[in-house]
Simulated scan of single mutants.
Amino acid sequence: MPRVPRRTTKCLSWKPDHATSATVSETAPEIFDRSARRLRRDRAAPGFAGHDFIRATMLDGIAERLDAVTRNFTDVLDLGCFDGAFVAPPGARVVRCDAGFAFAAGSSGVQADEDRLPFADASFDLVVSAGVLDQVNDLPGALTLIRRTLRPDGLFLGAFVGAGSLPALRGALRAAESDRPAARLHPQIDVRSAGDLLMRAGFTLPVADVETLDVGYRDIGRLYGDLRGMAASNVLAQRQPLRADTLARTIAAFAAAADDRGRTHETFQMVFLTGWSPDPSQPKPARRGSATASLGDALRR
């Protein structure tokens, strides 16, 4: 087997004490090449089932969080649907949406970028997104649109590959291009920034946490194959081709990091997001200065 995934749950978590508000920028830079991203997703679609282990793990985590919610959902948006593997709650109507034509068509869904959603406000009471938000040009805008498509007290559950992922590949590329490093992997979002983005987008009761997946590879070709197969290869707007001599040094550096069984271990940090659309029925944080007991007195006791 080319890989041996091992999942570690909730290695790091972030949860705000109170909600704040901020203005989302109306002009986000185009970090990613939208056309290249659609093309890579279309190319990955036919063989995605052989490389879906990251998204499958994310969907398992989302299902666990959804099971903890004691309410019914009737209208669900599966945003970034890939092959439509997300299983909605019983009785719910599901709309599937993907930036790639092949994935959207294969799941009888809608083709649209996450930061350019075509859905009306208050269309859904549950939005789920697994494995796509790390490749969105305007992530604050996408989260705001997700919140707007939710009805009051609607739930958003998301997951994406976050900061700290692919350390072995990053290290091998740095070693191969130590003199003039090029941007080969896109910037990644850490859990604290993800929580801040939820608040900026207007979600209430926001929670962001991380789960780690460790995967062993016998060679870098298997890793590149997985990244291409899961539509996670380089789609930066400013990307440079990898020269043959640089690739050879990258292969050697990756192999040099192998353990005694000949496997180089790669890590995927999966950031999970939970947020609710505002509603008057939701619990509110206590007003500052409203406490009736002294923390100092409690500690002295």
Rank of each mutant, 00 (worst) to 15 (best):
A68F: 09
P29V: 03
P278Q: 05
L39G: 05
D115F: 06
S21F: 15
A122S: 12
G154R: 03
A237W: 08
D33T: 01
A142L: 08
R228Q: 10
R6W: 13
R3L: 02
M1I: 08
M199G: 04
V235L: 07
R65I: 08
S290L: 11
A28Q: 10
A120W: 06
D297L: 14
R184G: 01
A244Y: 14
R41H: 13
G221L: 13
A49S: 15
P167V: 01
M58P: 03
L157Q: 01
V271F: 00
R43T: 10
G84A: 05
A232Q: 09
A99E: 04
S277T: 10
D52P: 06
K15D: 01
T292F: 14
R147G: 00
G202L: 13
P280S: 04
R34I: 02
L273E: 01
I54Q: 05
A163E: 09
S277H: 07
N234Q: 11
A92N: 07
Q238F: 09
N234K: 15
K15P: 05
A231F: 09
R34D: 07
F82W: 07
A194V: 02
F101K: 09
G158F: 00
V207R: 09
T212M: 12
F82I: 02
F86C: 01
A159L: 09
D125L: 11
L173E: 01
D245Y: 05
M270I: 04
A36G: 08
L143A: 04
A19T: 09
G225D: 10
R200F: 15
A253W: 02
G61P: 07
A122F: 08
L169F: 08
S13I: 05
F103A: 00
F254N: 03
R170D: 07
F53I: 06
F103D: 04
V127E: 02
N137W: 06
R218M: 10
A194C: 08
D190E: 12
